[in-house]
Design a protein around this nucleic acid. Sequence first.
DNA 1: TATCAGTTGATAATAATTATCTACTAATAA
DNA 2: TTATTAGTAGATAATTATTATCAACTGATA
Lengths: 151, 151
Amino acid sequence: MTSDNQVFDKKVIEMGDLLRKQGFRLTPQRLAILRLLAGSDQHPNAEQIYGLVKKDFPTTSLATIYKTISVLKQIGQILEINTSEAGTRYDISTSFMNAHLICTRCHAITDFDLPSGEIDPIIKQASEDSGYQQLMCRLNFYGICPNCVGT
Amino acid sequence: MTSDNQVFDKKVIEMGDLLRKQGFRLTPQRLAILRLLAGSDQHPNAEQIYGLVKKDFPTTSLATIYKTISVLKQIGQILEINTSEAGTRYDISTSFMNAHLICTRCHAITDFDLPSGEIDPIIKQASEDSGYQQLMCRLNFYGICPNCVGT
DNA sequence: TATCAGTTGATAATAATTATCTACTAATAA
DNA sequence: TTATTAGTAGATAATTATTATCAACTGATA
């Protein structure tokens, strides 16, 4: 579960190190966005993150959200999910064992933990066949979620 | 291979039927875009499709490209690939056995045929576990392509 | 304490996409 | 055949999401 507190605690420690290592600073806003993503499994978009961060930092600008998102992506602490169905969304989990179920009706995105044993051989084979280096992968499922079935 | 002529021939026949079934028309522009995607494995974006279609239809508007893309998506004849790395791109193949290798340096996208035996159980399990209906999936690989390694 | 690099927030600018509208065209009905 | 219609193309305007710019601020370091 991406809302697990342990995930967040681990991330916070990591984030401080990673930021400093690359000449960035650990700011309250950056912490707030990471906390927010860790505390929710809703996979919000930038606008939604903005709305939530403003509760704690009322003067925050949307530009700051985008810049923070960019920094957090750069240091590998968050993942961007790109879909035409649900727009651009963010996830605290960057593991590619974490797939996403995307509802094509309500645009909800939920996590789905992949059995690593089934993905590993596929990525290994793709890497060998293609000659691509540093290969990682992303699996998205699209369908109609239980709430939307029948509506 | 997505550039296979058989793929295109089959698509053309399908497209006429599908369009008419939904009250759309088979126009030269729609055919041109489908042919163009079938004849290339470059996975172009809208702007690139525009440039190519203009060779045959010099008066074509970019708006027409977007509208056509939208229609072709609706009838399930083309696939939209969404990435932050390489923008929004299009593919003639809509099968989810067709994964994509995306180079994070040069933004090339190449096809990778998945062994269906390895994906089927995963999608089946995801469907059962989640309760999602009409589930389909998309697998993207991200890495550095052979051409870009070492550059 | 002074300096400096990084950051924020406000705003402007850009890029990608969608909406609007008029003229055109193919299919159908009279 | 002609008239009607529904769908479409192309031009353009509008919108949305995102990024760039810049002055003021802040925290770390010399």
